[in-house]
Design a protein around this nucleic acid. Structure first.
Lengths: 145, 145
DNA sequence: CCTTGAGCTGAAGTTGGCTTTAAGTTGCAG
DNA sequence: CTGCAACTTAAAGCCAACTTCAGCTCAAGG
């Protein structure tokens, strides 16, 4: 089994265009060794990173935020289980938030449909936990961040 | 209680910039009546739409797709409960997919952390249901759409 | 009536996330 | 050692989703 992947191989295996992979490297999301002739050679572990990046992106996280997360992994040494645990904890919160938001949207959409109103005022959807009730009556979006 | 909202009021209540609201109107996501002096007056129901738009966007849906969804609501007549049910069903699938993806990411991240590997090859994360196994060995991202 | 803040338009500018292009170099199979 | 696909770079281009700007008009309180 090959140790290192060419950019073409990484692209095929990850389903991400080569140009995108180069772009990710440029903005510090991926790293690659070079051959004598200056061609990229990726460690197999970069596949994990690409998967992490694309899935995170799919659910609305910016590349900037993804980089921040990935930067918590030390570049100098091989990440320890503790390093990964740290990263995991960070993202668990973020993911939990998103899941909650989505589930609420889905259920409230269903709920609102039930009564035929799609009222985002009466629903918790746009006003979770009535957090903004003291800002006066009426609907108001309560978004994370 | 006021019947119609000015753009400033809609902006304040929705937390969405006026320029964004005008943009949404321009691309057909919102509709507004006009005063004699050409100023926008929004029906209160537009508040629902804005909430729907922003929440959908939060979880990675494009404005184009959102418009498609909203277009399933008839402009000519007041939407019936059936109209809303249709829209709801459409989005339920979409949302279910996203929720599944997110939950898997979260759980697998945890699981991988457990063994200290964050292996996206062995995990279902990047290869749900081994859907791509017959495309050869190794990791490959299996994304919806 | 006057002032002032809120709103109007169209056009240009911005940011994120890439893709495309041009012109050249590398690496491997035959 | 040749030929050709795969690779390299920098720069330009592109699309989505807005924001900003200039120069104006409107609406409501004093």
């Amino acid at each position: 089994m090959q140790e290192l992947l060419t950019i073409g191989q990484l692209s095929t295996r990850s389903g991400v265009a080569m140009s995108a992979l180069r772009y990710y490297e440029q903005i510090g999301l991926l790293r690659a060794d070079r051959t004598g002739g200056n061609q990229r050679r990726y460690a197999r572990s970069e596949l994990r990173r690409v998967a992490f990046i694309r899935i995170s992106q799919q659910v609305g996280v910016s590349l900037d935020e993804i980089r921040e997360a990935l930067e918590s992994l030390p570049a100098a040494r091989t990440p320890t289980p503790e390093d990964w645990t740290q990263l995991s904890r960070l993202w668990r919160n973020r993911l939990d938030e998103k899941i909650t938001l989505l589930t609420r949207l889905r259920d409230d959409l269903d709920g609102c449909i039930g009564c035929g109103c799609l009222s985002l005022r009466r629903c918790t959807l746009s006003n979770p936990g009535d957090r903004v009730a003291d800002e006066g009556p009426g609907a108001r979006l309560a978004m994370p961040r």
